[in-house]
Design a protein around this nucleic acid. Structure first.
Length: 273
DNA sequence: AACAAGACCTGCATGC
DNA sequence: TGCATGCAGGTCTTGT
């Protein structure tokens, strides 16, 4: 499911529910998701007070009162749902937390590509899943000159480079296609040719697409719903993703679908060069 | 070093 | 209706 806007939507929804709240009970129905879960995860969370949830790339980070940090990654199919009382649990509700307020936070993930981890808070920046991540695309550090220098010399297609989390952290398959369309850049273009005006257009397009998607509550295709049950309305604003064969909104020519690095890319070969 | 492919999983749409 | 196939929002690991 989730790229940066969907994860940010989840973080925002969690904030009022868990910030300053104490964990009353934990329901854990598996010992592993993508990888084995931390030992005694459930017991270690009991009685902990949660701080304001943070986001790094597609990871949600929650600092706890015992100086440990809970990391949540939603993988492809993960979702978080909120309830005002104990819910009826479904098949893939692997991890649920009850707060002393009576509210429940439920993590479900049919494909189990997601992950949970718990580690000392002061080791967060050294965590193997976090330490190699690239620049946050919505931060002030992400500028056109930074983008150009990240791409310089790379022969891989720009589509593949934008998906590389070591370069820019948080983009996924939907928003890469959407940003490249808005920037008028072909997903097949060599990454190393992104500089100057193209870098300016692409940097701006990435920021605009991500911000618009966050404001719309993300994109709902299959699994993603906002934690309160609402869908993400950015699905209505997709201009190329999933639109193969449909007319381009700018020129009317059919949107093309190609496979790059094993993943679908959608683009208009007339508007994107 | 850089890049592509394979692997991990389940669910769903499609076609026979 | 049942079954096989292919595809899906991610990313670590392996192979070229």
């Amino acid at each position: 499911m989730p790229e940066l806007p969907e994860v940010e939507t989840v973080r925002v929804a969690l904030e009022p529910v868990i910030s300053g709240q104490t964990i009353e009970s934990v329901r854990l129905t598996r010992e592993n998701l993508r990888w084995p879960l931390p030992e005694h995860l459930d017991k270690r969370l009991l009685g902990q007070c949660c701080s304001v949830p943070k986001r790094r790339s597609k990871y949600i980070l929650i600092d706890l009162s015992n100086e440990e940090t809970l990391l949540i990654h939603l993988g492809m199919s993960g979702a978080i749902r909120l309830y005002d009382q104990k819910p009826n649990f479904a098949k893939h509700d692997h991890f649920s937390v009850e707060f002393t307020s009576g509210q429940w936070v439920v993590f479900s993930d049919p494909r189990r590509f997601g992950h949970l981890d718990l580690f000392a808070s002061d080791a967060t920046c050294k965590h193997p899943l976090l330490s190699g991540l690239g620049v946050e695309p919505l931060s002030d550090e992400f500028t056109d000159s930074v983008l150009a220098s990240l791409m310089k010399g790379r022969t891989t297609p720009i589509k593949s480079a934008l998906l590389d989390q070591r370069l820019i952290a948080g983009l996924g398959n939907i928003y890469v296609s959407e940003a490249l369309f808005r920037a008028g850049i072909s997903p097949r273009r060599k990454a190393g040719t992104i500089a100057g005006q193209r870098a300016r257009r692409l940097t701006e397009a990435i920021k605009v697409v991500l911000r618009e998607a966050i404001n719309a509550g993300g994109t709902s295709l299959r699994n993603h719903i906002q934690p309160g049950g609402e869908i993400g309305y950015f699905v209505q604003d997709l201009r190329v993703y999933g639109q193969a064969g449909q007319p381009c909104v700018d020129c009317g020519q059919g949107i093309k679908q190609i496979i790059q690095s094993g993943r679908s890319s959608f683009y208009c070969s007339s508007c994107q060069r």
